[in-house]
Design a protein around this nucleic acid. Structure first.
Lengths: 240, 240
DNA sequence: AAGTGGTCTAGACCACGGC
DNA sequence: CCGTGGTCTAGACCACTTC
């Protein structure tokens, strides 16, 4: 049987999107059962494996949970599970007005740890962008990120100020962002961090180091962020 | 074509296990390419979709990464990604001798937040177990966990002291543990926590709340842990 | 008994990368 | 060009729960 061209959105993603839309619209409430895989297959005119693929994607995203031989159910809303996105995207979805103040925009060649993370030669130049993230009128995070200067010759200070840096980088690189490996721990605010964030020196901060990979599997952004913990919680689904 | 009985280990898990074993044995080093899906299918006498399933499971566990149209490669070792296990299991794998000191073992009925998390009636009794976790001779965490008293009538203080509490609970419940939803943030040590952990009052602590679900989809353990951040980092893979 | 998710087959076409 | 992963078909049987 003939299928649509491959350049279109895959069928399983369309089904996934339709189900997500139903959840957003409130037609599917937390706890409700999703249509069975067989139903979905019939309704969308695809094979069982394809319908299954859609439901598995939703499960992976933490939006549904499946009970073998019983059904698939909408999971309680938990903000975002294991989702890769800039804070701008994340918080603006919740109606908070976000802005960034660029503290640093410079080229540097002497951060060997960074070069190693990005799999660059030790003498490669990287762009270092440090930003104060402000939600509403409250500063809540300091984020520093590094990308290869060679791979992103067009990167300007304006990109960091105006729109999502992630979107810019992904677009310029030609591969969509794929996944991030993160290390999360806690630390205390330095004097400078305390001033910038308007908190007490030695106040606790959530520290997240992340290495963002594109769909070609290569790391393209290394990030280090310090977050005020009362304003930022990481939600994670750990499996098995 | 006839397949093996379903009660056996599924074919894709056997392949997954074999690949993991090769990685453990060092036959597959980080950066090495895995056999292609077609190779695996031929070698194990399964269809392409089944071989694919095995590789997808490895990707999900963060053990490999895939580059479309290029191949699948062994990921650098990153300790543990999105893995659900007790600290005992986690650290003893790294050769650290772990023990627990039970601080509290009691029944309580007045923690409505806990009952809500575990989807129990507000008047249901829960077992509250608070433990100081010690690695080597150093205390590094305080963990409190709650389970339904009704569902686990056999639970004794000894279980919390001796073996993995998770293993005990999973066994008694009859369903293996499946996934945990976690909220991670940072806080400061209270006076009591400081004394127990041998740290300064107001030192930063990593705080993790977790709700562990069994394979039937129901939450069975609610946990709240405070971890010394210099001894504990959370590794997470965030997708898309 | 009917329905569900879990596993699996034996093929297929596509777009793209450089084993 | 060939090989790769990504998507997809149109079926199948199993173990289990109860839609």
């Amino acid at each position: 049987m003939r299928r649509g061209r491959q350049s279109e959105i895959p069928a399983y993603q369309k089904i996934e999107g339709a189900l997500l839309a139903s959840m957003e619209a409130g037609e599917l409430q937390p706890g409700d059962a999703l249509p069975s895989e067989r139903d979905l297959a019939k309704r969308y005119g695809v094979s069982l494996m394809t319908a299954r693929h859609a439901v598995l994607a939703l499960q992976n995203a933490g939006r549904v949970h499946r009970r073998p031989r019983a059904g698939t159910y909408v999971a309680p809303p938990r903000i975002q599970f294991n989702r890769l996105s800039g804070l701008t995207e994340q918080l603006s979805e919740h109606g908070v007005r976000m802005r960034s103040k660029v503290l640093t925009f410079e080229f540097c060649e002497n951060e060997p740890h960074v070069n190693a993370q990005l799999v660059l030669p030790t003498d490669a130049r990287v762009v270092k962008i440090q930003r104060l993230r402000i939600g509403g009128e409250e500063p809540f995070a300091i984020e520093t990120c590094y990308v290869s200067a060679e791979a992103f010759p067009e990167l300007r200070r304006e990109h960091a100020e105006k729109k999502s840096l992630f979107a810019t980088v992904a677009e310029q690189y030609g591969h969509p962002l794929n996944y991030a490996d993160e290390e999360i721990d806690a630390t205390t605010a330095s004097a400078r961090q305390a001033v910038l964030l308007g908190i007490r020196r030695d106040a606790p901060l959530l520290r997240i180091r992340q290495l963002i990979h594109a769909s070609d599997g290569l790391p393209i952004i290394y990030g280090l962020g310090f977050y005020r913990p009362e304003l930022h919680t990481v939600y994670v689904r750990r499996v098995r």
